[in-house]
Design a binder for these strands. Structure first.
Length: 800
RNA sequence: GCAAGAGUGGCGGAACUGGUAGACGCAGCAGACUCAAAAUCUGCCGGUAUUUUUACCUUGAGGGUUCGAUUCCCUUCUCUUGCACCA
C-alpha cells in the first residue's frame, strides 16, 4: 500500500539536511533540556528497551520544538569500561576500534528510528577532547582535598582481576562476572563523597524525582543519628570506640563485639590469650561473601577475646569483648556495644553464648525476646524514671560529653567513592608520584593525558593495570622538582565519564573550558532526565555529588543537575521474562523496523502500557499499531478541500489536541495514542474529512510517528512540514457538547441513562429522571427519602 | 524485616477533584467481500440467569465511611522494585 522504508529514509535525510533539530546556544527562545541516558555501545546493538525511552523523550522534544522552545536533546556514547576491554582482550584489537564500530552501528540504528537528536553535539567519553576535562575535574577534586589516596580494604574480583567499588560488588558478588569477590588491601584513589552525604540528602528537595528514586537514594545514604562512645581498654591507654543510635541503653551493655577485621586484634595479639582460635575465626569470616555474612537466617557465630576487656564509661564496669561477623568492618567504627535486652541481634548472640542480659527499659519480657519498644528506664543510674526515648538519648549524650567519653555523632552508610581501577580501558588518573614530592598533579596544560597503546590489555596477576608495563609512559619527571617520577597507572571507573556528560552537551566543542559560562547559564538544569531504575543509587548519586562539588567550586551555576528524573519500565520478552539471548526471547529493533517500519515500532512502544512499568512484548500488538497507521494513511482518500474543521468533529478534535499535549508532557503516552485512535475511528465514520481535520490528526501524531505523518501532510498538500510548524492549539470554548449523558440510579444502582441539555437545572434533571420507565419501576409505591443531583453527571434517588 | 509501588476481562491496559467500571488495542467468535487465502469492512465479546429485556454478581480478600467507592479509611493476602545483621 505504501513503502514505509522509502518514506522513512526520505524524511530522515530531509531532517538531517535541514538541521531542524539543532539546539542553539545563542537563542532568545526559552530553553528546554531533555536528556536520556547515553548508551554503552556494546556489540549487540540497540535494544527494544532503548527504543522505548528514546521515543518517549523524542516525542517530548518534537512537541516542545513545535511549541517554540529551543530544545536540547543530545546523544552521545559512554564507551569506557569493561565490555570493550573484554572484547579487546579476546580479539587482540585496540578497544577504540571496537568502540568506533559499535558507535557506528548504534548511530545507524538510531537514525533509522528517526530520533531527533542534535547530532552536532555528539561525543564519546573516550574522546581525548572529552576526557581531558574529566581529568581536569579530577584535578579540581584533588586541589580541594577531596581526592586522596588511601590503603583501603577493597572488593577484589579474582576473575576480572580488578578492584570494584562497593556499588559494583553489592552482596559480595562481582557485578560483571558474578564471581565471589574477595577483600584485599590496596592503595586506592578515593573521592570524599561521604562528606557530601547531607548535601545529597537535602538536595533532593530541590528536585522533582519520582518518590521511589528519592527513597532509594535516602536509603543508600543511610543517615543515622546517635553517639560515639569511648570504652577504655582495661589495662591500656587505648579506647575502643563504638557508634550507637541508642546511647540511652548504655547501662544495659553486657558485652562488646568487634568485626573480625578490627585493627585491635593484631595490635593486642599478645594480650589476647586465645589468639589461635581468634585467627581461625578470622579466616572463616574472610571466606564468606557479603551475602553469606548478612544472611539473616544464619546462626550467630563468634569468639570471645580472652584477656581483653573494656570499661563501660557510665558505670566503670568491665565488659567482655567478642569478635563476630555480624559486625561490619566498614560501617561505623567496626565495633559495637551490645545491649541484648533491647536489640534483636545482640539478644540472639547473648542467648547463644550464655551472656547475661540486663533490662534497662520496662515494657517487654526479656526472657523471651529483645524489647525494642519504648518504656520507663530502669537500672540506669541518672536515667532512671525517664520515659521519653528522645529525652533519654539526649540526656545520656550530655552526660557522656561532660565526662569527655562520648559525643553526638551522625553516621552514614554512604562511603567514599573508590575511584581507582586496575584496568586499561579508562581515563588515566592524571597524577605523578615523586619520591621526593609525593603525589603531584599533572599540570593542567598537559591534559589530556592520553591513554597509550599497550602490548596486552590483560590486567596483570598482581593486580596492576596493564599500563604499568608501558615503562616509557610510566617513567616521567616530577612536575615540581624535575626529578624522576612515575605516573599513576590506575584508571578511572566507568562511572567517571558519565558524571558530568550532560554539562558537556551544553557546549561540546569548547576547547578552553569544560563548558562555557554562558552555555551553563543558559541551559541550567536538565529539565527531564530519563534513565533506568538500576541507576537510581549509583550513577545518579555520583552525578549529583560531582555536580554539587562543581557548584561549590563556582564552576556551575546550579546546585543540582537534574530537575526531573523519570525512569522507564523494562520491555520483557513475549513470555513475560527478561529478554536474554539464552532464553531466546530477544527482539531486535532492526527486524521490526524492516518489517513494520520505525513509525509502527515507535507507536507500539508508546502504546504498550504505563511508561514507568515493565511491559511484555507482543508482536500482535505491534501489528495492531501498524494497522492504525495504515488507517491513518487511508484517510487521505476522504480529504476534501476545505480549511475548517468538520462541524461535528470539532469538539472531539479540540479535546484530542488538549489530551495529546497533556499526555505527552506527563508521559502518559499510551492514552495519547488511544485518544488518536478514537479520533481516527470517528474520522472513518465520515464520508469526507476536511484538510484541516486531516492535518490536525497528522500533526498530533507527528511527535510519535514522525515520518508517515510528514509524508501524508506533503502528499495531501496540507501545509508546511510539521518540523517547521507550530503545534495545533485547542479552542477552550469549543470543547463541550450541548447535550450530556446523565446517569440515573436508584439507591445507588444504575437504572437508566438519558441525555439532557448541558447545565440543565436540578429540577429539570430530576423530572427527566423520574419519568424514565425503568426508574418508575423501581420507585413506584416507595417512599422517596432523598434525591441527589450532580449537574451534568448523575441523579440518584434514594427510596425506602 | 524495613521502605516505595502495584493487584481491574482470555491478554496489554483506561477511568478527571468519589459520580454510567472495563475506553483504546490484542486475541477470540459470527458475518460480508473472495473460487480461495491474505488484506479490509460489519456485528458480538467480564460472569450467571433470562421472556434479549432486565436482574444479580464483579476492580486480590474482608470490613468501614458515603446517597454513591477501582478511587478515601482500617485489617489482611499476593506480587514487583529498592535497602537489608547499618549498631
Amino acid at each position: 500500500m505504501y513503502n514505509f522504508s522509502e518514506i522513512e529514509e526520505k524524511w530522515q535525510k530531509k531532517w538531517l539536511d535541514s538541521d531542524c533539530f539543532k539546539a542553539y546556544n545563542d537563542s532568545d527562545k526559552e530553553k528546554y533540556y531533555l536528556l536520556v541516558e547515553f548508551p554503552y555501545p556494546s556489540g549487540s546493538g540497540l535494544h527494544v528497551g532503548h527504543v522505548r525511552s528514546y521515543t518517549a523523550l523524542d516525542a517530548m522534544a518534537r512537541i516542545k520544538r513545535m511549541q517554540g522552545y529551543n530544545v536540547l536533546f543530545p546523544m552521545g556514547f559512554d564507551a569506557f569500561g569493561a565490555p570493550a576491554e573484554q572484547y579487546a582482550i579476546k580479539n587482540h584489537v585496540y578497544p577504540a576500534e571496537m568502540v568506533k564500530n559499535s558507535i557506528k552501528t548504534f548511530k545507524t540504528q538510531m537514525m533509522k528510528l528517526g530520533f531527533s537528536f542534535d547530532w552536532s553535539r555528539e561525543f564519546a567519553t573516550t574522546d581525548p577532547e572529552y576526557y581531558k576535562w574529566t581529568q581536569w575535574q579530577f584535578l579540581q577534586f584533588h586541589k580541594a582535598g577531596l581526592a586522596y589516596k588511601a590503603e583501603k580494604e577493597v572488593n577484589w574480583c579474582p576473575n576480572c582481576l580488578t578492584v570494584l567499588s562497593n556499588e559494583d560488588a553489592e552482596g559480595g558478588v562481582c557485578e560483571r562476572c558474578g564471581n565471589k569477590t574477595e577483600k584485599k588491601l590496596k592503595s586506592q584513589w578515593m573521592l570524599a563523597m561521604s562528606t557530601y552525604a547531607d548535601r545529597l540528602l537535602e538536595g533532593l528537595d530541590k528536585t522533582e524525582f519520582m518518590d521511589k528514586i528519592k527513597t532509594a537514594q535516602i536509603n543508600w545514604i543511610g543517615r543515622s543519628e546517635g553517639a560515639e562512645v569511648d570504652f577504655k581498654i582495661d589495662g591500656e591507654d587505648d579506647i575502643l570506640q563504638v557508634f550507637t543510635t541508642r546511647p540511652d541503653t548504655l547501662y544495659g551493655v553486657t558485652f562488646m563485639v568487634m568485626s573480625p577485621e578490627h585493627k585491635f586484634i593484631e595490635k593486642y595479639a599478645s594480650k589476647i590469650k586465645n589468639m589461635d582460635e581468634v585467627k581461625k575465626y578470622q579466616e572463616y569470616a574472610a571466606s564468606k561473601t557479603e551475602i553469606e555474612r548478612t544472611d539473616l537466617t544464619r546462626e550467630k557465630t563468634g569468639v570471645k577475646l580472652e584477656g581483653f576487656e573494656v570499661i563501660n564509661p557510665v558505670n566503670n564496669e568491665k565488659v567482655e569483648v567478642w569478635i563476630s561477623d555480624y559486625v561490619l568492618a566498614n560501617y561505623g567504627t567496626g565495633a559495637i556495644m551490645a545491649v541484648p535486652a533491647h536489640d534483636e541481634r545482640d539478644f540472639e548472640f547473648a542467648n547463644k553464648f550464655g551472656i547475661p542480659i540486663i533490662e534497662v527499659i520496662k515494657g517487654g519480657d526479656i526472657s523471651k525476646e529483645a524489647y525494642t519498644g519504648d518504656g520507663e528506664m530502669i537500672n540506669s543510674g541518672e536515667l532512671n524514671g525517664y520515659t521519653n526515648k528522645k529525652e533519654s538519648i539526649s540526656k545520656m549524650i550530655s552526660i557522656l560529653e561532660n565526662k569527655g567519653v562520648g559525643r553526638k555523632r551522625v553516621n552514614y552508610k554512604l562511603q567514599d567513592w573508590i575511584f581507582s581501577r586496575q584496568r586499561f580501558w579508562g581515563e588515566p588518573i592524571p597524577m605523578i608520584h615523586c619520591e621526593k614530592c609525593g603525589w603531584v598533579r599533572v599540570p593542567e596544560n598537559e591534559l589530556p593525558l592520553v591513554l597509550p597503546d599497550v602490548p596486552s590489555y590483560e590486567p596483570t596477576e598482581n593486580g596492576e593495570s596493564p599500563l604499568a608495563n608501558v615503562t616509557d609512559w610510566v617513567n616521567t619527571t616530577c612536575p615540581e622538582c624535575g626529578g624522576p617520577a612515575k605516573r599513576e597507572t590506575d584508571t578511572m571507573p566507568n562511572w567517571a565519564g558519565s558524571s558530568w556528560y550532560w554539562l558537556r552537551f551544553m557546549d561540546p566543542h569548547n576547547t578552553q573550558e569544560f563548558v562555557g559560562k554562558d552555555a551553563l547559564k543558559y541551559w541550567g538544569m536538565v529539565d527531564y532526565y530519563n534513565g533506568g531504575m538500576e541507576h537510581a543509587t549509583r550513577h545518579l548519586l555520583y552525578a549529583r555529588f560531582w555536580h554539587e562539588f562543581l557548584y561549590d567550586q563556582g564552576l556551575v551555576p546550579t546546585e543540582e543537575p537534574f530537575k526531573k528524573r523519570v525512569s522507564h519500565g523494562m520491555i520483557l520478552g513475549e513470555n513475560g521474562e527478561k529478554m536474554s539471548k539464552s532464553k531466546g526471547n530477544v527482539v531486535n529493533p532492526d527486524d521490526m523496523v524492516k518489517e513494520y517500519g520505525a513509525d509502527a515500532l515507535r507507536t507500539y512502544e508508546m502504546f504498550i502500557g504505563d511508561y514507568s512499568k515493565d511491559a511484555s512484548w507482543s508482536e500482535n500488538g505491534l501489528k495492531g499499531c501498524k494497522r492504525f497507521l495504515d488507517k491513518i494513511y487511508r484517510l487521505k482518500d476522504k480529504v476534501i478541500d476545505k480549511d475548517e474543521y468538520t462541524k461535528d468533529l470539532e469538539i472531539l478534535i479540540n479535546k484530542t489536541i488538549k489530551k495529546v499535549e497533556e499526555d505527552i508532557n506527563t508521559m502518559n503516552y499510551n492514552t495519547a495514542v488511544s485518544a488518536l485512535m478514537i479520533l481516527s475511528n470517528e474520522y472513518e465514520k465520515h464520508d469526507n474529512i476536511t484538510k484541516k481535520d486531516y492535518r490536525t490528526i497528522l500533526h498530533l501524531l507527528n511527535p510519535i510517528a514522525p515520518h508517515i505523518t510528514e509524508e501524508l501532510n506533503e502528499i495531501a498538500k496540507l501545509g508546511k512540514p510539521f518540523y517547521e510548524s507550530e503545534f495545533p492549539k485547542y479552542d477552550e470554548n469549543n470543547m463541550t457538547e450541548d447535550v450530556v449523558n446523565i446517569a440515573c440510579s436508584v439507591n445507588g444502582k444504575l437504572r437508566a441513562t438519558f441525555t439532557a441539555p448541558i447545565n440543565a437545572s436540578k429540577e429539570v434533571l430530576l423530572d427527566m429522571a423520574r419519568s424514565q420507565e425503568n426508574v418508575i419501576k423501581h420507585i413506584e409505591g416507595k417512599e422517596i427519602i432523598k434525591e441527589i443531583v450532580v449537574p451534568n453527571k448523575i441523579v440518584n434517588i434514594v427510596v425506602k
